[in-house]
Design a binder for these strands. Structure first.
Length: 313
DNA sequence: AAGTATATCAACCGCGTAGTG
DNA sequence: GCACTACGCGGTTGATATACT
């Protein structure tokens, strides 16, 4: 692409570049911001010499790509859970949601929602914003993400898989993890602990019981809504005591199998997070299409006794 | 191996809003 | 209160990578 076009007004007769940024442009922008700081984007665009970009374009490039604390790589289960929860409360308020995911941009979250979540809804022929789909997410997807978080933590505690951010498995296109990204500091795991449900749990989960959050098995065990203000309040997967590093990234996780589902409902027996074959199993923390279809059908027909939707108030 | 379909995500666009004179 | 400018947000597009046939 990299087209240019003429401009008038605030950029005078300057030829404005569009399309992908080059290394030279990035360097110029970084240098300028290092000298003059963020903000005043139009002034930046005018005064930065050979950087023939609009202020808007400079701002976007900086905020979405060049800013030092941008975290790259796939979303962790914790982050996915946070997005699902916050979106259920706030809708498409991407910027607001991004404020609660350190190092993630609104653009990235928006893309995640459109490419992953909406895709699932579309294939199920339900509206992603419908109550039905939200319930399905809350009852099936979120518990699985919680379990992913728990499984990951267990493996880490056993020393089965240790890594740092710069050793993290890398995705096919965006494996970079900004070295300046500091590890998130986590609070207490007890901050999000649904009511205990002793039954309906597989033996495999019991080994996690001392360190992992108990997994909700009914809709009523999830918070009915997210808190109005998340700072310092109960629901915060990112404060769950679990690492955010990419070792837990389900897209790149190369460990298999994980523990059997700890929930009362059954999952497909070939459930793994191995990279080698994601065609019909859990992919990046999502349900496979078949699984989600089955579950949703059960939900719609009211046939799933383990999911008492009537309790969902 | 080549062609095609699909997924991903960086970048652009339009619009609303806040700030300023 | 009005006009103008700058900024930020959310929706959309299009290039590229990857998967599939």
């Amino acid at each position: 692409m990299s087209e240019t076009r003429g401009s008038s007004g605030k950029y005078g007769d300057m030829e404005l570049r569009r399309g992908p940024w080059t290394l030279e442009e990035d360097t110029l922008l970084i240098h300028y911001i290092a000298c003059h700081g963020e903000g005043r984007w139009n002034l930046l665009a005018r005064c930065s010499g050979s950087l023939k970009r609009t202020g808007k374009s400079c701002r976007l490039r900086w905020l979405n790509y060049l800013k030092p604390d941008i975290k790259r790589g796939n979303l962790t289960p914790e982050e996915q859970l946070m997005i699902l929860e916050l979106h259920s409360k706030w809708g498409n308020r991407w910027s607001r949601i991004a404020q609660h995911l350190p190092g993630r941009t609104d653009n990235e979250i928006k893309n995640y929602w459109r490419t992953r979540v909406q895709k699932q809804a579309r294939q199920l022929k339900v509206d992603a914003n419908s109550a039905m789909f939200r319930d399905a997410v809350r009852c099936y997807w979120m518990p699985r993400l919680l379990e992913k978080m728990g499984s990951s933590h267990t493996m880490q505690s056993l020393g089965a898989y240790t890594t740092t951010t710069d050793q993290a498995p890398q995705g096919p296109r965006h494996g970079l993890v900004n070295p300046s990204m500091q590890h998130h500091q986590f609070g207490s795991l007890t901050s999000y602990e649904p009511p205990a449900v002793a039954e309906n749990r597989s033996p495999s989960s019991s080994s996690c019981s001392t360190v992992l959050p108990r997994l909700p098995v009914t809709v009523s065990e999830f918070p009915s809504t997210a808190p109005d203000e998340l700072d310092g309040v109960a629901f915060d997967p990112l404060s769950s005591g679990l690492s955010m590093n990419n070792a837990y990234d389900l897209d790149t996780w190369d460990l298999a199998p994980v523990s059997a589902p700890a929930l009362g409902y059954s999952a497909s027996p070939d459930y793994t997070v191995a990279n080698s074959d994601c065609s019909n199993t859990i992919v990046d923390g999502l349900w496979s299409l078949d699984e989600l279809c089955d579950m949703l059908k059960s939900y719609i027909s009211g046939a799933d006794p383990k999911v008492p939707f009537g309790d969902n108030s």
